[in-house]
Amino acid sequence: MAEIVLGIGGIGATNTMGSSLKTYALGSCIAVVILDPQTRTVGMVHVALPDSSIKPEKVATLPGYFVDTGIPALFEQMRRCGTKGPKGLIVKLAGGAQIMDQNNTFNIGKRNALAAKKILWGFGLAPVAEDLGDNFSRTVTLAADSGIMTLSSPGRPNWHI
């Protein structure tokens, strides 16, 4: 069974039965997961920062690092697997953790989540499920066969969204 591991900024899409996409230890980063029930394609991008304007030259080598370039690049990869368009796609989000801070000083997790929702909204999509925020990191596994999204974190039993 092929497991495609995505690092920070990694983008993956597959419709091969038995394969899965996985990304480890999302801190303030977010995994944007897209499922296409028509072509049975699953896709995931591990985005780290909300906006590529912070370092535009990085987009050429790692578009998945930023929310604003990572999500369109994920659509592009899914199109190569046969996905037609945003209509009918299922979106899920996970990650966006933050340090304990009542003032939300370094709220990159929250900004990533808001930016992702805004970009998705531009494609006419909204997440059907999300597991965002809190103070723990998340590892996400996405099975191509079932589309089941499994989350894990050190010291906790696995859960699904």
Binding site: A48, A97, M100, T105, I108, P154, G155
Partner: peptide, 19 residues
């Protein structure tokens, strides 16, 4: 480091930022 996903396990991000 912790925000970047490089923590040391169960302690995750359960620490306080000193403002």
């Amino acid at each position: 480091a912790m925000m970047g996903g490089y923590g040391t396990g169960t302690d995750n991000l359960f620490y306080r930022l000193d403002q």
